[in-house]
């Protein structure tokens, strides 16, 4: 299955343009959707999951148009929203059973098999009788992904899946997803945790202010940043100066000062050695230099989670 996003525009009631004529093609495999907050990722996903209408343009799932063929599209979709909670009074297995039943799996026994298999796959079989809202954060997320993949959907849309998870859970989560992506499905992973993408996605798109800014493989993006990431040693005084000039990616205290990594087209007034960029570096470079959209590296949200 292919997804074609055509001239997608979304203007909210208050005049805010969340999407400004987006065009994008997505092929089977894991697809990363990157972008800072407010880039339009969530709007795009909500339109894709038919929770919202676009203002103009459309999205085609093969030949199915989101404006006309909603039933067909809904039957190939799996969705895990960002801040996902559960009905208070359903057990873990029931929640999955509910999703499975709505996904069209008929017959109690058959459904029980599917549900149990999925629970095993996501490692929740032991807690199947626990109230869903009593699960730990990671378990909840796993249950979330389980309900998103129940019924073998052709398109799985996952919004910020690893936010707030510890590294172990995050790896588990990625593995579940990669497992699924072996099949002929599209997994769209929206995130601002760039690391999630480099390790799983073959392709990614970067959105900013409702527009597509980059589309390609993670490697393509890294390539763009080659030679633009530097490691320098600075004193306390110099650190302040650097801070004002360049986005700093990491700061490690060293004898008499700091070993820092910065992103810059070229270093002026400092000496440092260029280092091989990774996807995070590429992202920062991209945002700061190519889009001229300076990122606030110290804001809590990004600073806290971007470079894990």
């Amino acid at each position: 299955m292919n997804i074609k996003i055509k001239d997608l525009v979304k203007v909210y009631g208050d005049g805010y343009k969340a999407l400004k004529g987006l065009n994008l093609e997505i092929e089977p495999g894991m697809f990363g959707l990157l972008g800072p907050n407010g880039a339009g990722k969530t709007t795009l996903m909500r339109i894709m999951t038919l929770l919202q209408n676009p203002s103009s343009g459309t999205i085609l799932f093969d030949d199915y148009d989101i404006l006309k063929d909603r039933k067909a599209i809904r039957s190939v979709l799996g969705y895990l929203p960002q801040d996902f909670r559960f009905f208070e009074k359903l057990k873990t297995w029931e929640f999955l059973d509910y999703g499975a039943s709505l996904a069209g799996i008929q017959g109690t026994r058959k459904r029980a098999e599917v549900v149990d298999e999925l629970l095993r796959k996501v490692g929740l079989y032991e807690v199947r009788d626990r109230w869903a809202n009593r699960l730990s954060g990671g378990m909840k997320r796993r249950l979330g992904i389980a309900q998103a993949i129940v019924g073998d959907p052709k398109v799985i849309i996952v919004d910020e899946p690893t936010t707030g998870l510890d590294p172990e859970e995050r790896i588990r989560f990625r593995n579940i997803l990669s497992d699924v992506s072996d099949r002929d499905v599209i997994i769209i992973l929206s995130t601002h945790i760039v690391g999630d993408i480099s390790s799983t996605c073959k392709k990614l798109a970067l959105l900013n202010r409702g527009e597509l800014k980059f589309e390609g493989s993670p490697d393509d993006m890294i390539k763009l940043a080659t030679g633009k990431v530097w490691e320098i040693f600075v004193t306390d005084r110099e650190l302040q100066e650097v801070k004002e000039k360049y986005p700093i990616i990491s700061t490690i205290p060293s004898e008499g000062g700091w070993d820092i990594q910065v992103v810059a087209e070229e270093l002026q007034g400092f000496t440092g050695k260029p280092i091989a960029p990774n996807i995070e570096h590429a992202y920062v470079y991209f945002m700061d230099y190519l889009l001229q959209d300076k990122m606030d590296m110290y804001s809590e949200k990004i600073g806290g989670e971007l470079f894990n």
Partner: peptide, 18 residues
Amino acid sequence: KRDKKLDTAEVIYVRPMS
């Protein structure tokens, strides 16, 4: 109101029932 806790309802809403 319960359905307004959007994210819970959304996983139901994306399902193919009318």
